[in-house]
Computed example of a mutant assay.
Amino acid sequence: MLYNIPPILSPDLLWTLRAMGHGDEIVIADANFPAHGLGPKTMRLDGISATDTLAAVVQLLPLDTHVPTPAHTMQVVGEPDAVPEIVAQFQTMIPDHKIGSIERFAFYERAAKAFAVVQTGETRLYGNIILTKGVIGT
């Protein structure tokens, strides 16, 4: 056991967060996301929500301050300006950073290039977010 580590973060996920470098991206995905077919290493957090996962991850992962939007969600198909309730929750969890949105298939393409994907048990639609890792300043 370790102090101050959210208990939902598995050893594999902790290793992944530590191994990522500046500019690497990680996807937190809902239960419907085609994670295993995209290519990056996929870790599962079945039974854990995407919001709980995001809250745990951002306690440890610095977001990139050198890009305008270090976090991106998937746009609602046919309604690119819609903001699903879960996306609004994501924004409250990272208030110092603007969250961008990406068209569905462009989101899949970007996710395919990510360092890793964390597939959660999230059942709310559009519960997907890509985070860009930043640096820890001195």
Rank of each mutant, 00 (worst) to 15 (best):
113 K>I: 06
49 S>M: 13
82 A>D: 08
120 T>L: 11
124 R>L: 08
81 D>F: 11
47 G>Q: 02
106 A>D: 14
71 A>F: 03
64 D>P: 01
118 V>C: 10
50 A>P: 05
58 V>Q: 04
47 G>M: 02
49 S>V: 13
108 Y>T: 02
129 I>A: 06
130 I>P: 00
20 M>G: 00
134 G>K: 02
48 I>Q: 15
111 A>K: 01
48 I>R: 14
103 E>F: 14
110 R>D: 05
63 L>M: 11
138 T>H: 10
66 H>V: 11
49 S>H: 14
84 P>W: 08
66 H>T: 13
92 T>Q: 14
24 D>R: 06
119 Q>N: 12
78 G>K: 02
74 M>V: 06
17 L>W: 00
133 K>P: 00
20 M>E: 02
15 W>Q: 12
44 R>L: 11
94 I>P: 01
126 Y>S: 04
90 F>M: 09
105 F>A: 04
32 N>V: 10
77 V>A: 12
94 I>V: 13
79 E>N: 09
25 E>R: 11
65 T>V: 14
100 G>Y: 10
65 T>E: 15
31 A>C: 13
56 A>E: 04
110 R>W: 05
114 A>V: 07
116 A>I: 10
83 V>N: 05
89 Q>K: 11
78 G>V: 04
102 I>D: 09
88 A>K: 15
108 Y>F: 08
46 D>A: 10
18 R>N: 11
23 G>T: 10
35 A>T: 00
47 G>P: 02
85 E>S: 13
15 W>C: 13
135 V>L: 10
22 H>N: 07
28 I>W: 08
75 Q>V: 04
67 V>T: 15
117 V>P: 06
26 I>W: 06
118 V>G: 00
116 A>K: 02
79 E>I: 03
42 T>H: 00
109 E>A: 12
76 V>Y: 00
90 F>Q: 05
86 I>L: 08
56 A>P: 07
120 T>R: 10
113 K>H: 15
39 G>K: 03
16 T>N: 12
113 K>C: 15
47 G>L: 04
77 V>L: 05
98 K>D: 15
136 I>W: 09
110 R>Q: 10
64 D>G: 05
25 E>H: 04
79 E>F: 09
62 P>E: 11
115 F>G: 03
113 K>E: 15
30 D>C: 07
99 I>V: 15
50 A>F: 03
22 H>P: 05
30 D>F: 06
125 L>I: 08
52 D>T: 07
42 T>C: 00
102 I>M: 15
79 E>G: 01
88 A>G: 09
127 G>A: 13
127 G>C: 07
111 A>Q: 02
48 I>G: 10
98 K>N: 11
130 I>E: 01
17 L>K: 01
98 K>A: 15
72 H>T: 13
56 A>V: 06
41 K>M: 01
32 N>R: 14
107 F>L: 05
105 F>Y: 13
38 L>C: 06
45 L>D: 01
47 G>C: 02
53 T>G: 10
69 T>W: 10
82 A>R: 09
121 G>Q: 08
71 A>T: 01
99 I>M: 15
96 D>I: 11
122 E>D: 13
23 G>M: 10
23 G>A: 04
114 A>L: 12
22 H>L: 04
89 Q>P: 00
57 V>Y: 01
73 T>M: 07
